[in-house]
Design a binder for these strands. Structure first.
Length: 193
DNA sequence: GTTCTAGAAC
DNA sequence: GTTCTAGAAC
């Protein structure tokens, strides 16, 4: 047995089985350091790796895995998400957007509330950028409307998702098309007052 | 979702 | 030679 595999074996024997990363939001919902506020049906937490100056997540207290589990019985719940958005917008002068990722990575339905500056050290990759600035970001109002109209939320095809993630970089505030992520991040600073 | 890093791009 | 991106992670 090599030194490397022996070390891994010892580590695994000594540590409890790690929870999968995709369950992380459920842990954050129970962590007082993360929780910003609670309402009757929601919990608001700080995003652990904020992609803008303000970045919160709104989650249902009930065990709903994603927007694709919603039906017409959840319209009241979703409207409460809208109330939370209004309340948080009223707490800051920074313009905010609220919406859901069409293909989320983390379990438990969650709505992003994020400021439009997109200035953050945690914003690093093209996938980060395109997740929030292409049709992969489904605005709150659109999701509420679709739920009211259709009684459910339609999934995005893997093909469209892949194509959105590889969209060329485009500034969210002007027509500038940066060559790469460092250029985009530098450019975003110029939009600040 | 993040971290790490090989090798592409410059 | 350095910067940057993209794919594996058992």
């Amino acid at each position: 047995m090599s030194k490397r595999s022996a070390a891994i074996t010892v580590t695994n024997l000594n540590s409890k089985k790690a929870k999968h990363w995709s369950l992380g939001l459920l842990e954050s919902m129970k962590d007082p350091e993360s929780v910003v506020k609670r309402t009757k049906q929601t919990v608001v937490i700080k995003d652990k790796y904020p992609k803008a100056k303000i970045h919160y997540l709104v989650l249902p207290q009930d065990d709903i895995n994603s927007i694709y589990k919603l039906d017409k019985s959840h319209i009241k719940l979703l409207e409460e998400f809208g109330d939370v958005f209004k309340d948080i917008q009223n707490e800051t002068d920074l313009p905010l957007r609220a919406g859901f990722h069409a293909v989320p990575s983390m379990q438990r339905m969650h709505m992003h509330i994020i400021s439009t500056d997109m200035v953050s050290p945690c914003l690093k990759t093209k996938v980060h950028w395109n997740s929030f600035t292409t049709k992969h970001f489904r605005p709150y109002a659109d999701v509420l409307e679709e739920l009211k109209e259709k009684g459910c939320i339609e999934k995005m095809s893997p093909e469209l998702h892949k194509s959105l993630m590889s969209t060329e970089l485009q500034c969210n505030q002007c027509s500038y098309k940066p060559k790469n992520m460092p250029q985009l991040k530098e450019h975003l600073l110029t939009h600040q007052k």
